[in-house]
Write a protein that binds this DNA or RNA. Structure first.
Length: 424
RNA sequence: GUGGGUGUGGCGAAGUGGUCAACGCACCGGAUUGUGGCUCCGGCAUUCGUGGGUUCAAACCCCAUCACUCACCCCA
């Protein structure tokens, strides 16, 4: 073999691709039901979009971007997430001039240079939604409710939403101060990375997996406790709306998100049994992002769902995704070279009528062709040979019952149409 | 970037120094002359990720390298 697929990428093969089509179609349906329209943005953007949009100090920007110079010496990056591109398209195409809010969704590949592991790939796929233009807490709840509805429609039960408020530019500095004050005298006990986090981003100490760090964090000041009254109020209302939607949520004071742009509401949907990467959906509010990208101040909120992780979960939960495969309905077996042309034309006519039809491509024995027909699990096998050709007839064998009849060739189309209708 | 595990035919998998590299599944062919699903028979790796070394002899030992995989960081 010349080479293999690049590390962290996957071929989605026949048999698997039907599942993708299914979950993508369901995403489109649910999005439409909630009033979201699809947007398709380029898979690569100018690097500066992500530098500003995602945040210079995030891991994504610092070590995970697929960036390169194109032949025109432009600095280009394969998109690592969907929100920045959506905001850019919103501004560039002046969608803000339309009636607000703007509710959009996207489905497509994203790229991050990570070490692959279960549920993490260098090219992965996300279904995401974004709402621009409204601060209203019901929007936060709607977006979360949309994610839950989608997952439930796919057959996942017991969805649990973890939710928190990460504050706003007004109160976040105060929270940092409170955290630093709290951790100051305990610094020696923290793990090395958390000691670094003291300086860089003390918020992240809260979700460190080191057990002593966790113990220390238990009684750390929560974001909610340091939140300003506006943030608190917003958060309470979001929770209230979630209850109206009967969304099963858990306030998780330790939930923080790694992207710089989040404000107020942050949430994740976690599942078990698919490895260490258990968040299949993450999102939150980003009220500063549109302005950050050069627009007028305008609030926004959204989520992104990892489709590989979703598929892993559906698989793990034994959600039935079978029956998505479509087998041919008819197999045409040919036993005489003379019958080849007629059978070929017949196959084409059936296909044009919307009757999916398979045939042999090797001039195999009838036995072998019957075997193939059986494997395709067709309803009828047509047999065409010298005798049939001579009599202007064709044998129709119903595979399930093994019954077979001779039908005049001229009547075969209508005969099959009736026969296929009978059991559908 | 760091650490662990694994690499034998299309897939699963035995074999840990000494004839032809088990077996199962899948695939292909056949079991009297034109018919599937069961059964039976036959076929299917000059070769054990790759390169080098040790040895009379290596899939099995050593070194290197690559790939896959899981985990950390972080995220979907």
């Amino acid at each position: 073999m010349l080479t293999t697929r690049p590390r962290g990428t996957n071929d989605i093969l026949p048999g698997e691709v039907e599942k993708w089509q299914f979950i993508e179609n369901e995403a489109r349906k649910v999005s439409r039901d909630f009033g979201y329209q699809e947007i398709r943005t380029p898979i690569f953007e100018h690097t500066e979009l992500f530098l500003r949009g995602v945040g210079e100090t995030t891991d994504i920007v610092e070590k995970e971007m697929y960036s390169f110079f194109d032949r025109g010496k432009r600095n280009i990056t394969l998109r690592p997430e969907g929100t920045a591109s959506t905001v850019r398209a919103f501004l560039e195409n002046k969608l803000f001039a339309e009636p607000q809010p703007t509710k959009m969704y996207y489905i497509g590949p994203m790229f991050r240079y990570d070490r692959p592991q279960a549920g993490r790939y260098r090219q992965f796929h996300q279904y995401g939604v974004e709402v621009f233009g409204s601060h209203h807490p019901s929007v936060d709840a709607e977006v979360i409710g949309l994610a839950c509805t989608y997952l439930e429609k796919l057959g996942l039960s017991g969805i649990k939403v973890h939710i928190n408020t990460v504050g706003c530019p007004e109160c976040r500095p105060q929270h940092h101060v409170n955290l630093l004050k709290y951790f100051e005298d305990k610094k020696d006990k923290l793990c090395n990375t958390c000691q670094d986090r003291m300086a860089k981003n003390p918020l992240r100490i809260l979700d460190c997996k080191n057990s002593t760090c966790q113990e220390i964090s238990i009684s750390a000041p929560t974001t909610e406790s340091s939140a300003c009254s506006e943030c608190k109020g917003h958060f309470q209302q979001v929770l209230n709306y979630l209850e109206i939607l009967e969304v099963n949520y858990l306030v998780d004071p330790k939930l923080v998100r790694g992207l710089d742009y989040y404000t107020h509401t942050a949430f994740e949907i976690l599942v078990q049994g698919i490895g260490a990467q258990s968040a299949i959906c993450g999102g939150g509010r980003y009220n500063g992002l549109i302005e950050q990208c050069g627009g007028k101040p305008m609030p926004g909120i959204g989520f992104a769902m990892g489709l590989e992780r979703l598929l892993l979960t559906l698989n793990n939960e034994k959600v039935n995704l079978t029956g998505l495969l479509s087998n041919p309905e008819i197999y045409i077996a040919v036993t005489s070279p003379k019958a080849q042309e007629l059978s070929f034309r017949l196959a084409m006519e059936l296909r044009k009528k919307g009757i999916s039809t398979e045939k042999d491509y090797f001039e195999k024995s009838l036995k072998a062709q019957m075997k193939a027909a059986d494997r395709f699990d067709v309803k009828f096998t047509l047999i065409l040979g010298e005798e049939e050709l001579a009599n202007n007839k064709i044998i129709v064998k119903e595979m399930a019952t093994s019954e077979q009849k001779e039908i005049p060739i001229d009547d075969i189309l209508s005969y099959l149409e009736r026969g296929l209708l009978k059991n559908d």
